[in-house]
Design a protein around this nucleic acid. Structure first.
Lengths: 131, 131, 131, 131
DNA sequence: GTGGTCTAGACCACT
DNA sequence: GTGGTCTAGACCACA
């Protein structure tokens, strides 16, 4: 499914959150699909079950997963995710900070534009895949 | 100089790092300018001096500041900051992740484009200021 | 009859209990009426029979249903339900807690009053229906 | 501060959440006030620190507390709490369910009204206290 | 000192 | 089998 980087300063559960989120957002995991059980993924990644559960719960809070106790954990359908304006402006701030940093590192405005366009194109790609 | 948001989940030292970086990148703090001393800023922000110390050290490590013992801490000139390709691609990853999330939250491609353009425009603004 | 919300954090058997209780209390199911058999409801809701069984048992315990072996499960007549003071004060506590929360969430006293009145009115409605 | 009921089917962390919420909503704990540290409360209640932390985190998610790592956990000011309509209608459902049950238990409409009024009055009481 | 993360392993309720 | 809770105890980063 994915691999952990134990050397990263990111905590394990955060890495799991990010990886699962990416799998969902790129369409590798599709709506209503069952995720590996807590114990199963715990074995696969050789990580404590509590850590997996923490990650799954965080993803639930963020609206990406839902859980049926006794049955398992599933990918939420995209319609369930509420267009949260606080979240959007939070992301905007992160983008702003990073674009500034790119500039300060010496990237020209054109280079930055081309980077952003590239990222937008890639978005279209996996958007098509999920069709 | 700037204000801290104690209710943020960001750690205090991280907020200081980000704020100082922003002041430098937007040209509010210009090259060779002296920063407030650790003790001074510690009083201004009513924050533990160790926390300021840690933030300054981090900024030094990232190349934004330099310290002369006995004199103080100063803003490094922009040329000192190496066009670091690892750093650039790291930022690219962050941008990618966040653009994906915007899309997944329900933003249309056009909306995302307009957000990015807005951020690029804003960049031009303070680019002019720093001239 | 009713639908389950698998994405709810409520357990399935609890949802069944609540739904059946509601149907009884609003008069949709009337006294002495036969409920679908465990197997039948299990098919309708595509839910494990054990889960239905557990819900029926709970409703029996609470006094809303009674079972005659070999015949089926039936709605108890309202007189069977004892005016249980412990139960009443328990509900009072729940109401108190939730009214407090409404207030704390920023609802004005008037708004809360109008909400409560609305709920009382609605009560009169289905009270009439059951006549 | 408060006591746990180990016999309750409510989980320990849930009891802590409810108790702290009540203390905040009744004004016993006021805005910006520091809560006992995780370890401290853990000793007071003779409960594992992880359990306390889980409760504090849940309260943070709900907007009642905020945390500064290394400093402690504090009561959020009421203005921070967003009037969440989903939450309000969720509470409305709970109220509805319980009012229905009161009626079904044999309470007259007048008795229910007087109960609700009593609860609204009590609200005014501690509202005054917090002035 | 504070909270944050993680492990190992146990027990419970629900499906 | 599934997730949910809890304990005991360790280690880390931050203030």
């Amino acid at each position: 499914m994915f691999q952990l980087d134990l050397k990263s300063r990111k905590s394990i559960y955060e890495q799991i959150v990010d990886n699962v989120k990416e799998l969902i957002m790129t369409g590798v995991l599709s709506a209503e699909e069952k995720l590996p059980s807590v114990r199963e993924l715990s074995k696969t990644l050789t990580v404590n079950p509590n850590t997996i559960q923490k990650a799954y719960r965080e993803l639930e809070y963020q609206g990406f997963l839902y859980t049926i106790a006794g049955l398992g954990t599933f990918v939420a359908s995209r319609e369930e995710i509420i267009m949260d304006n606080r979240k959007v402006s939070e992301i905007k701030n992160i983008l702003q900070k990073n674009i500034r940093e790119l500039f300060y590192l010496g990237c020209s405005q054109d280079k930055i534009k081309s980077i952003l366009n590239e990222l937008l194109e890639e978005r279209s790609d996996w958007n098509d895949k999920s069709k």
